[in-house]
Design a protein around this nucleic acid. Structure first.
Lengths: 191, 191
DNA sequence: TTGCAAAGCGGAGGCTGCCTCCGTATAACA
DNA sequence: TGTTATACGGAGGCAGCCTCCGCTTTGCAA
């Protein structure tokens, strides 16, 4: 029973990265039903390699999603430093989140609609940094007494995401989503 | 150029009804990606018959959706008679809508995410009775001065639907959605 | 270096579902 | 009852999904 493993092969790492990169492009364009064979072609690897790295379509989505989360968490940290009013900082961060989600609506929708338990667990796991970010913002606002007490940061995250990918695409997509987001956030205010 | 057409064949009408019925079952179970061949099998007709009646997957979804809307509009009319407070009547109707949507989340999600212009137009057309229903409720509440003025009935419909199909399925799905709906509706209140 | 085994590659192939097409069946009408 | 418009259904071509396994490449030890 050898517990010490070889380090991963360099070509394997390279191929995995190429696949995620190709997937970001293909899935952004073709939506969640895009052909995985097209992703493999675009990455310049065989379809078998794709399936070895990402046994299911969802696994690939999750990898792309992780990228997205990293971007968002980073942004949150940056915003956190500057703001003074906790409530407004939260609101502004949600606006930023809407902006970053703008291009990946279909993908996220497919991910959070999926039924399988394992995928849901992985999705939750990957989402953690996001939830921690919004959590900090929520606590800060709550400490000021500006937030109703019966709502969790997870609720907020889910709801704003929902507003994003329910709103039909169009030139004024962002305006409409931001408007609805403001209404929802107004509902969060303590009375 | 004969403008007078024969009346539709009885077997054709029967088959169409059988298909919609089968689709309600299969799509509720298997979600929006269920096999259309399975629907035809379940209905006991050939796949060709399915495609003649519903040239695209979306056309079939729309037919199923129309059923759903009829149910909801009927319910709205019934509720409208009884309520006294406009704001609360609206809130209660939205609760009822959540209940009826409960089983068809995936279907509705796929429909409102679809890109094609014609489908979107048909979707809007079929949704009209719903929008009229919520419109009446909204105007009534607005007349009382209990609603903020910068929100449309369409916004409300879209947003509550979004909350429905973003929330992951589970035993407490309805509880969570109703909670978020209440928060959203609270945001609608005039200040 | 060199040899070798572990790790990874890739695409053929079987399968399923999508959708079209057209020969056959049948309901409506005279 | 005959005619004809209308509808039926499933074979077949195509595309994407996923698995499997013979071949290649890489890391490691000698």
């Amino acid at each position: 029973m050898t517990l010490a493993r070889r380090k991963p092969r360099s070509d394997a790492l390279r191929n995995r990265a190429k696949l995620i990169d190709a997937a970001r492009g293909i899935l952004a364009r073709g939506g969640p039903e895009a052909s995985l064979e097209a992703v493999a072609r675009q990455a310049g690897v065989g379809i078998g390699t794709l399936y070895r790295n990402f046994p299911t379509r969802e696994a690939l989505f999750l990898a792309v999603y992780r990228q997205e989360v990293d971007d968002l968490a980073e942004l949150a940290a940056a915003q956190e430093a500057g703001g003074e009013n906790g409530y407004d900082t939260l609101r502004m961060w949600l606006h930023a989140m809407v902006g970053l989600i703008e291009t990946k609506r279909g993908l996220l929708g497919a991910l959070s609609a999926v039924g399988c338990e394992e995928t849901k667990a992985a999705y939750a796991e990957i989402s953690k940094p996001l939830e921690e970010a919004v959590n900090r913002l929520v606590h800060r606002a709550a400490a000021e007494g500006s937030l109703r007490p019966d709502v969790s940061s997870g609720d907020i995250l889910t709801s704003v995401r929902a507003l994003c990918y329910a709103q039909p695409a169009g030139p004024d997509w962002k305006v409409r989503v931001l408007h609805l987001t403001d209404i929802f956030v107004d509902g969060l205010r303590a009375r």
